[in-house]
């Protein structure tokens, strides 16, 4: 559906910026819905953990939703993604069913991985999600092989691989970008730079100011974007996806964002200030986008609340599904170690 900036009100307004104008109402509705699903999924996961319903640990991406949703918005269903330990957002953004995700979180038999993987290993292979990954930079070399596979099978798919700023100091990052470049593989490398590798500030861990700067070593485009600005993320990701699909090779896209929660459940935030966290809370991607949409009369406030409410309801149902799901049978402990 074509959007006509400012057309729904007689008030003279500043025109929509190009990145927003490029997004139709349907696309925005999908994006908003996914961002709310992610936010609510993670808030609910966190609450479930606090109440002792989930064991283990989890890595929340609250605050990073625009990055997950914006980069994937223009992917096709049969495109691939590879995700990280902080991967709930990518999974939902790629179209996974939150109920089966929650069931996995709860370690239940009808979770995406039949309860064997948990939060850090959710994969939705049929949906093109080749898995979250518990190893920093673990997905990067795998993406190279996926790219080789797409090329060898003459498919028109694209592989988008997510990783954090910390991963860019792993050898795997450099080996992978180099191979993707020399073989012009259909890969979009998405670095979600949330400023910290656990506690280590990227400014202390990396010698160049931007992760995107590292693209020059591999003669590929390197683009840095405000990762909390959904229309800007979409506008940066779409050409990278198109380039990859056309056979033009990989792009390194850096989404500068921030995780509002700690690294994992053990994090006491000793390495950053409350003020810093509050500054980033003010840049919250969901509220920012909603304000802009209301300001330009793209959506009424009531419509936005309806989108949020629907997302919340989906997550509540997902939680109930997970709670009601059966546990795996210990007699099947060693099942699926090997494929037949």
């Amino acid at each position: 559906m074509a959007s006509l900036p400012g057309s729904r009100t007689a008030d003279a307004q500043a025109p929509e910026r190009a990145e927003l104008a490029a997004l139709g109402d349907d696309a925005l509705r999908v994006a908003l819905s996914r961002m709310h699903l992610i936010r609510k999924f993670e808030e609910t996961a966190e609450a479930s953990y606090m109440r002792g319903l989930i064991h283990g640990t989890m890595h929340l991406s609250i605050g990073q939703e625009a990055s997950a949703v914006g980069t994937t918005l223009k992917l096709e269903r049969d495109d691939y993604i590879l995700s990280t330990h902080r991967g709930h957002g990518h999974c939902i953004a790629k179209g996974a069913d939150p109920a089966r995700m929650f069931a996995e979180f709860f370690g239940k038999e009808n979770g995406y991985c039949r309860g064997r993987g948990g939060s850090m290993h959710i994969a939705d292979v049929e949906g093109g999600n080749l898995g979250a990954n518990g190893i920093v930079a673990g997905g990067l070399p795998i993406a190279v092989g996926v790219g080789m596979s797409i090329k060898a099978q003459k498919q028109h798919r694209v592989c988008m691989v997510f990783f954090g700023d910390g991963a860019t100091n792993e050898g795997a990052f450099h080996e992978s970008l180099n191979m993707a470049s020399i073989w012009r593989l259909p890969i979009v490398f998405v670095c979600e730079n949330n400023k910290y590798g656990m506690s280590m500030d990227i400014a202390r861990a990396m010698a160049v100011p931007n992760v995107a700067d590292r693209a020059s070593s591999y003669a590929i485009p390197g683009i840095a974007v405000d990762g909390n600005d959904l229309p800007a993320v979409v506008a940066a990701a779409e050409p990278a996806i198109d380039l990859a699909r056309r056979g033009g090779g990989p792009t390194l896209l850096e989404c500068k964002t921030y995780r509002l929660r700690g690294h994992s459940k053990s994090d006491r935030n000793l390495y950053r200030t409350k003020e810093e966290i509050e500054t980033w809370r003010d840049k919250d991607a969901i509220r920012r986008l909603e304000h802009e949409l209301v300001a330009h009369n793209r959506f009424a406030e009531t419509e936005l609340r309806a989108i949020e409410e629907a997302a919340h309801k989906t997550i509540e149902q997902a939680l109930e599904f997970a709670k009601a799901s059966p546990d795996p049978d210990p007699a099947q402990l060693t099942r699926d170690v090997y494929a037949d």
């Binding site: 292979v125 070399p141 795998i142 190279v144």
Partner: peptide
């Protein structure tokens, strides 16, 4: 050269590439 592929000296990278190719039909 598309079936017998020389790789850079990147053992971690090529091992991962094998994984990625294998899980997507190769």
């Amino acid at each position: 050269p598309e079936r017998v592929i020389d790789t850079p000296i990147s053992e971690l990278g090529i091992a991962g590439a094998a994984v990625g190719a294998a899980i997507t039909g190769m």
